[in-house]
C-alpha cells in the first residue's frame, strides 16, 4: 500500500474475542503530511470492526486537532489498511484465535 507517513498498529494483542480493537497511530514520516500535526505523539483509540469506519475516526481526529483536514484522507487510509490486514489475519486463524 502507498506509504502515508503514518503508522497504525495494534495497541493490545488481538484476542479475536470481540469486534473491538485497541489501535495506536503515530506520524512516522512528517514530510508526507500536508498540514500541522503533533510529532512524536502516539494516539491510542478503540475501533469496532462492525460499527466504526476509518473515515469517521479520521474525522474525529481532525476535529480533536490531532491532524489537519488536508491529512484526513491519509489518516483514514492508514487505519483502513491496518484494519484490513487484521481482518485477513483473523480469517486465517481458528475461531476465537
Amino acid at each position: 500500500a502507498e506509504d502515508t507517513g503514518l503508522r497504525v498498529e495494534l495497541a493490545e494483542e488481538d484476542d479475536c474475542s470481540n469486534s473491538s480493537l485497541a489501535l495506536r497511530l503515530w506520524v512516522e514520516d512528517p514530510k508526507k503530511l500536508k498540514g500541522k500535526h503533533k510529532d512524536n505523539e502516539a494516539i491510542e483509540f478503540s475501533f469496532n470492526l462492525e460499527t466504526d469506519t476509518p473515515e469517521e475516526v479520521a474525522y474525529e481526529m481532525v476535529k480533536s486537532g490531532f491532524f489537519h483536514e488536508s491529512d484526513s484522507k491519509a489518516v483514514a487510509k492508514s487505519i483502513r489498511d491496518r484494519v484490513t490486514l487484521i481482518k485477513k489475519t483473523r480469517e486465517k486463524k481458528p475461531p476465537g484465535c
Binding site: 503508522r7 503515530w26 512516522e28 514520516d29 503533533k38 512524536n40 505523539e41 502516539a42 494516539i43 491510542e44 483509540f45 478503540s46 475516526v57 474525529e60 481526529m61 476535529k63 480533536s64 490531532f66
Partner: peptide, 27 residues
C-alpha cells in the same frame, strides 16, 4: 502518567502519549 492526555470526541476516547523512543528509531 503526566505524559498521557485523554481527549474525547463524539463519544470516542483518544489517549495521547509520547511515541516510544524505540519506535521512533525504527522509522
Amino acid at each position: 502518567s503526566s505524559l498521557t492526555q485523554v481527549v474525547h470526541s463524539a463519544g470516542r476516547r483518544f489517549i495521547v502519549s509520547p511515541v516510544p523512543e524505540s519506535r521512533l528509531r525504527e522509522s
